[in-house]
Simulated scan of single mutants.
Amino acid sequence: MASPAFEEIVETFEFLEDWEDRYRHVIELGKAFPPLDPAFQVPAFKVEGCASQVWLRPRLEGQGAAARFDFEGASDAMIVQGLIAILHALYAGLSSAEVGQVDAVAELGRLGLNEHLSAQRSNGVRAMVERIRKVAAAA
């Protein structure tokens, strides 16, 4: 169910042999991710449960079952900004129903992130995924 953008990230990770290179790639993804307007870096969009400051601003394009989920995001930590970009590749463009069907743990596991993120970062990723799923389910 992964998007072509996420599959491209998986392929790149398979090509990069050591985790230092993979971390650098995650940071590069974050730097390339469009910035979130500071006007949206407010409590309503803040993700609780992250060690870093994280804001996700969801957007739905379209109506009803045909609506497509998207979001903007920002973090004060470079690696977390990259994780936001990875989650964007995983979820953006899916219908609200499809968002709920994504097994984020399994998909992110394909990148090996489960074994290489600190407990705090892993908790933050889970909090971001929960926020994404909650917003999509409410749509």
Rank of each mutant, 00 (worst) to 15 (best):
R59Q: 15
C50I: 06
A137S: 15
P4S: 11
C50N: 07
S122I: 06
V105S: 08
R24V: 03
S52M: 03
L117I: 14
L60I: 14
F6Y: 09
V26Q: 09
L113N: 08
L56S: 00
Q120D: 15
F45H: 15
H88R: 13
D18Q: 13
E7I: 02
L94N: 13
R59C: 06
F69Y: 15
A92F: 00
H88V: 06
E7Q: 14
L87H: 08
Q41T: 10
H25Q: 14
I86M: 14
D21F: 00
Q101A: 14
E7P: 01
H88T: 03
S52C: 07
I132L: 12
E14C: 00
D18P: 09
F71S: 09
F15D: 12
I27R: 04
I79Q: 09
P34C: 12
R57C: 04
W19R: 12
F6W: 05
S118P: 02
C50D: 04
V47I: 15
M1H: 08
G82P: 08
E7G: 00
S75N: 06
G124E: 09
R121L: 07
A74T: 03
I132G: 01
D18M: 13
R131P: 03
V47H: 09
R59E: 14
N123M: 00
R24E: 14
A51S: 08
E107W: 07
G30V: 04
R22D: 08
M1A: 11
A5D: 12
G93P: 05
Q81S: 14
F15Q: 06
L29E: 12
F69C: 05
G30Y: 05
E14V: 00
R68Q: 11
A137P: 08
R68I: 00
Q101F: 01
A92Q: 07
L83W: 13
E28C: 00
I132D: 02
A5W: 01
E107A: 13
F13N: 11
A89P: 01
K46Y: 04
A74Y: 12
M1Y: 02
R59V: 15
H88E: 08
E48P: 01
F45M: 02
E107P: 04
L113C: 09
W19V: 11
A77C: 05
E72T: 06
D76F: 02
L16V: 12
A51G: 06
E98N: 00
G64T: 09
Q63S: 13
A32T: 05
A89G: 04
A65P: 06
V135E: 15
R24K: 05
G93A: 07
D21N: 10
A106G: 04
A106F: 10
G49M: 09
A32F: 02
